[in-house]
Amino acid sequence: MKRNNFGYYIREGNKGIFVHGFMSFAAICAIIACLLIMGSFVLITLNLNNIISDLERESEILVYIDDNLSEAEAKSVGSNINMITNVQQAVFVSRDEALQDYIGQQDDPTLFDGVDATTLRDRYRVTLLDIGQTKDTVTKIEAISGVAKVSAHYEISNGFMTMQSILNVASTAIIAILMIVSLFIISNTVKLALYDRREEIAIMRMVGATNRFIRGPFLIEGFTLGIVGAAIAFFAEWGVYSLITVRIQAVDTMKLLNLLPFMDIWAPMAAGFAAVGFVVGVIGSALSIRKFLRV
């Protein structure tokens, strides 16, 4: 006697959710709270990574070449700079170009008429692959023959990197704790359902129901709670994040921060939320039902 039991699992699993309405509500709320906090940390981390990437693209260090070198000799130093692993690009800027750039940035360029470019040095604008290694890279560049001075402002990047490291550790710890809390709540919700139906389960076992058959409805119950919680949390996160980004972008001083639009990251976020909802729901149920299925 074989038949597809999936319909039975869904029917019984969903019935369980409504029979223990309050606990189901509590479980869904716990998952929403957990995922909202988790999602917020992920969004902050993603944005911080994005800002650091921007900094990496935009921040550059200036490498000044020894006055005594000719322009041709100064250009040859560039190949040594480019050989350093962390260097993305080294662009040569001659004294004349440097002077023109400088004058171009001034309000009244006429003040600099007659200024000789020899007062400046040839230089390289160097961009890095990883600004976390700025200090090491500067040391390597300073060791190159013909380099007179290296100017780098790595305090800001170091600040971001430190914040990113702290956030990574904090978010991992918080995510782990919240997942355990959610697992515990889901597990208790399902345990209540199991306790309520213990006679039924005993009868099922006695008439020869397989463990898979007995487990099915409870796994569906946990899965549904997890996915419903994840879906609500996802849309709430979307709404709150969009609101916050709009507010931040409205502040003049914050406009420079390039925040990720939610539409750019909704797919991995949705997949992450669904995965956490699924894992918390199904594993929470599976943990509860294990002891009821011992022979």
Binding site: M1, R3, N5, I203, M204, F213
Partner: peptide, 13 residues
Amino acid sequence: AFAMRVIGASEKE
């Protein structure tokens, strides 16, 4: 019927 359902009997059976 429950005892039949739990061992996978069809509704017809």
